[in-house]
Computed example of a mutant assay.
Amino acid sequence: MSRRDFPPLNTLRAFCVVMRRGKLCEAAGELEVTPQAVGHQIRALEEMLQIKLFDRRSNGLMPTEQAVLLFHFVRSGFDELEEGLARISRPPQADRIAKIS
């Protein structure tokens, strides 16, 4: 998959929230969108990757093995991104020079 074909970050974010929450409606609440919008993001990701990420059941979504594996890497990537943003957002610390009296 080339970078040009890379899934949009919002789609990957929706996927991560669904994996953590386990239900579209709970993920939608966290993302502040409708459950239908979350479902659309998940279907778009499945189509883009050409794999089934969830088994749809009457009591909710059941992640496939591929979804569990993908979640591991996507969550890791978001953690790295969050750390990088936090590091560049911190005010630089002035070099400290010790005074000897």
Rank of each mutant, 00 (worst) to 15 (best):
Q93N: 09
M62R: 15
V38Q: 01
P91M: 10
D5M: 14
F78T: 02
S76D: 15
F15I: 07
A27G: 03
L12I: 01
L45N: 01
P7E: 02
A86T: 09
N59R: 13
K23Q: 14
R21T: 06
Q50P: 07
F78H: 02
M19W: 00
D95I: 11
C16H: 00
L85Y: 07
I88F: 08
L81H: 04
R56M: 10
R75W: 06
L45E: 03
S2W: 09
L53V: 09
R21K: 12
L49K: 07
A14W: 00
S89R: 06
F6R: 15
M1K: 12
R20Y: 07
L53A: 06
S58I: 11
A44S: 08
V18H: 03
R21L: 04
P35F: 01
D95G: 10
V68T: 14
R21V: 04
P7C: 02
E32R: 14
A37I: 00
A94S: 10
R87D: 13
F6E: 15
I97D: 08
I97S: 12
G22K: 08
R87T: 09
A98S: 10
M48Q: 09
L31S: 02
E26A: 12
R21H: 06
R21C: 03
A67Q: 06
G77I: 01
G29N: 14
K52F: 05
E46H: 02
A44E: 08
L69P: 09
M62N: 14
C25Y: 11
R4N: 07
I97A: 10
C16D: 01
E65Y: 12
A86P: 02
H72V: 07
G29H: 12
L45M: 07
Q50E: 14
E26F: 11
H72D: 07
H40M: 08
A94G: 06
L9G: 08
A28P: 00
I51T: 13
